[in-house]
């Protein structure tokens, strides 16, 4: 029996290593196409190696001890039934994990600040803003600068930072394009910010990663990355050929349904802000924040603003500081 376990364990670990290191195109997380995803991949490798430093010896030690001290005829391994304490040994194995975890904690903290999703990506090019709204069960993307919008389809230019502004019409979803970088929740009544960038032309898979009900599995979308010229041509084409998204059309989209890819040459003014603010003022008028206009809120919604709750004055103050902090230390890629 022991033999099997001895053979099996390393085999399985190897199998896992092969699976994990398989840099095939299918391993989206390990095949990033943008700076954020690239950093996250590096971080995954660093943490894996740091963990393996301790895990591999432990696994080998387990196999060795189990085999060496098995109770078998002719096994003359020492037997010390009352040996149950060694301060020296215990200090060793308290300190090894402490050291590893300390290193890991420092690495993690550093990357946590560096990869804070709302932090702009350093680039010569000005970022393009795309507003993302998760609906039951489709994604609505609005391009405020271009004035167009799409459903279940994103097109972006290569090499340009994209500032995603995200919210949800109802249940919480999560916006995830594995090859560009990690996900962030879309939450009703809040506008989140996520910076991503694609450095290569191609088609990238995107999905809603948080369960939102019956047909949530249908909320996948393609992110087509093109050259800047092709992107401009596409915007132009949508503007001239696609129908407009009216308020009525939007309301129809908010009803639960599964949709195919759609494009619209325009969308109602301030649609995203309206979605964010829609639940405020109904029953929550007690929490309203005196006098601030939609435009003002917009500048302050960068983080986890919960517009419906809590005291806006405090939150504004806190987040303004936070904004300044993060914007002064840009990504270095």
């Amino acid at each position: 029996m022991r033999r099997y376990i001895r053979v099996l364990t390393p085999l399985l670990i190897m199998l896992m290593a092969v699976l994990l290191s398989g840099c095939g195109e299918q391993y989206l997380v390990l095949d990033p196409k943008g700076p954020i995803g690239e950093s996250q991949k590096d971080l995954i490798y660093i943490t894996t190696i740091l963990c393996l430093v301790i895990v591999v010896p432990v696994l080998i030690l387990t196999g060795y001890i189990v085999w060496r001290y098995r109770d078998k005829k002719g096994n003359n391994a020492p037997y010390q039934p009352n040996w149950n304490h060694s301060t020296k040994l215990e200090i060793i194995w308290w300190s090894i994990p402490i050291v590893i975890i300390a290193i890991l904690a420092i690495v993690t903290a550093k990357y946590t600040y560096e990869l804070e999703p709302s932090k702009p990506i350093a680039s010569a090019k000005a970022p393009i803003t795309i507003e993302v709204t998760s609906l039951d069960w489709k994604w609505l993307f609005t391009y405020p600068e271009e004035g167009i919008s799409t459903v279940n389809y994103l097109q972006i230019p290569e090499g340009t930072p994209i500032q995603f502004r995200l919210t949800s019409d109802t249940a919480m979803n999560s916006f995830w394009i594995p090859q560009l970088g990690g996900q962030i929740y879309t939450m009703s009544g809040m506008a989140m910010t996520l910076y991503l960038q694609a450095d290569e032309i191609g088609n990238y898979y995107g999905s809603g990663a948080n369960f939102t009900g019956e047909h949530f599995a249908q909320m996948t979308f393609n992110v087509k990355t093109t050259s800047e010229d092709d992107y401009k041509a596409w915007v132009q084409e949508v503007k001239t050929t696609a129908p407009a998204l009216t308020q009525e059309g939007f309301e129809k989209l908010t009803e639960p349904s599964v949709e195919t890819v759609q494009s619209f040459s325009s969308f109602p003014e301030g649609l995203f802000q309206k979605v964010v603010m829609q639940y405020i003022g109904e029953g929550g008028s007690a929490h309203h924040h005196g006098g601030s206009t939609a435009a003002e809120e917009d500048t302050n919604m960068d983080h986890d603003m919960d517009m419906s709750d809590t005291d806006m004055k405090d939150m504004d103050g806190m987040d303004m500081n936070h904004d300044q902090e993060t914007s002064t230390n840009q990504h270095s890629h």
Partner: peptide, 17 residues
């Protein structure tokens, strides 16, 4: 070990869900 990997917040953005 995979739990520790998940605890690395920025990497968790890719592992989560």
């Amino acid at each position: 070990m995979t739990g520790v990997m998940l605890s690395v917040a920025p990497a968790d953005f890719q592992f989560h869900n």
